[in-house]
Amino acid sequence: MSGTAILELRKLTRTHGKGAAEVHALRGVDLIVRAGELVAVMGPSGSGKSTLLSLAGGLDSPSGGEVVIENTPLGSQSKSQLAAIRRRSVGYVFQDYNLIPALTAAENVALPRELDGVSARKARTEALAALEEVGLQAEADRFPDEMSGGQQQRVAIARALIGERRLILTDEPTGALDTETGETVLRLLRKRCDEGAAGVLVTHEARHAAWADRIVFIRDGLIVDESAPSQRAEDLLVSDEVQA
């Protein structure tokens, strides 16, 4: 891939706890994700996948090494500057949706824009456009507990996509979804990367990793392998249809 490096992780380490309770979640990870590229991160439970994602999004601070987003080292940023990066540059999708129950779908999607000072009316317009992209414009004024899991996850995707985000981080976005809905979600992610964003997809399912351009394997806090998917996702879909 020759696109601009959007995300760079340089010798990234993260340690939790002290003494006997010390846990090395990451032990010197190097990773570059470029524009237009979707990278899948796979590994067993406890390998450090979610920690990697938290550090990449600036939600956590590394014990060593550096995180650079669009040539901006996060370590030199204040809390306010980090928050601004998350509002404007980084979209985050959690496994358990993490929608705010007291806000409607449109308000949840508009959240980063409203937090950035955009007027409620303008933010809503953008949110409706993002919801249309994920096929949920009709649900704009529903609350999360009035929607299915799949709809909620699509709302969360829309929130991660709103605005001109250059980096999308997703942590097991299809974990709680049925196959068809999961495929829809990944298709959205793929589309945004094809349009120029960089994406990181944490997953433990190979079929989902097949949507990526590159798969990195992480174990015990270290990247142990890296490869291109053996089969493209489209091919996997065709195989499934043939088998059916």
């Binding site: 306010s80 928050a83 980084v90 980063p112 950035d116």
Partner: peptide
């Protein structure tokens, strides 16, 4: 707490 974490993740300012 969980709402606050979400807000932080989507870029709310520290004083939120």
């Amino acid at each position: 707490q969980s709402d606050l974490e979400t807000l932080a993740a989507v870029g709310a300012r520290p004083r939120v």
